[in-house]
């Protein structure tokens, strides 16, 4: 009895100590740190002032979803096309596509969005801000999806291409009927990671004046004199992205298990 309880204590001692530390820290924060918690509640969690204003966030929320869906669609399309083109091993495509990937993997999203929105009008190309964000995000994440699709296509064995050729398929048929369906399985977990990144990066649209969540929150912050809308928006972002994060880590775990067995 005694030995087992000692063992238990040994096993969980670090957990216990951590728990006690956290508890002490919370007690300190709440009572002894001298922080003004009523101020915190009033400024950060003042949902009474937000009442009747939640509808303002509906259209920007839809806008964020729209930008993400469009950008994801275009990025996937770009990635798929370029990866297929690259798989034919033609020198010209090889060089240009690699250059594209390196260029857009290197450029910061913020810089590209600003460049597209503020520089293109000088050559008479006046894109609406939403479209310029969609365009930059598609180009940016197209580079990542190209790499993803390429590794997916590479993961299919060479033998299968030869087999499908010997069945009389041409290279396009082999790509469409044999390689891509198998590549999809490898490709989907990393694609969800791209989806997360796109969702997060849409927030950059704030800089070029797209009326999205942050912009609305900052407006409302000025009106009601409290940061609560900002907190609300960050929770909103969290709630949109978290399901995708969970889905993505599930898929990744499953694919890892699948590849190990």
């Amino acid at each position: 009895m005694r030995a087992s309880s000692r063992k238990w204590l040994h096993k969980y001692s670090s957990t216990l100590i951590t728990g006690i530390c956290i508890l002490l820290f919370l007690v300190y924060l709440a009572f002894f740190s001298g922080a003004d918690w009523s101020l915190f509640r009033e400024q950060f969690l003042n949902f009474e002032k937000m009442e009747g204003r939640y509808y303002i966030f509906i259209s920007p929320l839809l806008l964020v979803v729209k930008i993400s869906i469009y950008s994801c669609f275009f990025a996937t399309f770009i990635g798929l096309c370029l990866a297929v083109l690259r798989s034919y091993k033609i020198k010209f495509f090889d060089v240009t596509i690699t250059a594209y990937v390196i260029l857009f993997r290197s450029i910061p999203a913020m810089v590209l969005v600003v460049l597209v929105y503020f520089a293109l009008p000088f050559v008479g190309l006046n894109l609406p801000s939403t479209n310029s964000v969609i365009m930059s995000l598609s180009l940016l994440f197209g580079a990542y999806t190209t790499e993803i699709f390429r590794s997916g296509i590479n993961s299919v064995e060479k033998l299968q291409i030869e087999a499908s050729k010997s069945l009389g398929m041409n290279s396009i048929q082999a790509m469409y009927h044999v390689i891509l369906p198998q590549a999809m399985r490898v490709v989907i977990p990393p694609l969800t990671t791209v989806l997360i990144d796109v969702l997060k990066t849409t927030s950059i649209a704030y800089v070029v004046g797209v009326p999205e969540l942050i912009a609305r929150a900052r407006q409302m912050e000025g009106v009601i004199g409290s940061v609560t809308p900002l907190i609300f928006v960050s929770v909103l972002y969290f709630l949109i992205i978290l399901p995708v994060v969970i889905l993505s880590s599930r898929l990744e775990k499953r694919s890892r298990k699948w590849s190990n067995s």
Binding site: F44, K200, S203, R218, E221, L230, V233, S234, F238
Partner: peptide, 14 residues
């Protein structure tokens, strides 16, 4: 699940 820009605004302006 948190965009960096949101965190930055909360820390700097919030």
């Amino acid at each position: 699940a948190t965009p960096i820009i949101v965190a930055l605004i909360v820390v700097y302006f919030g």
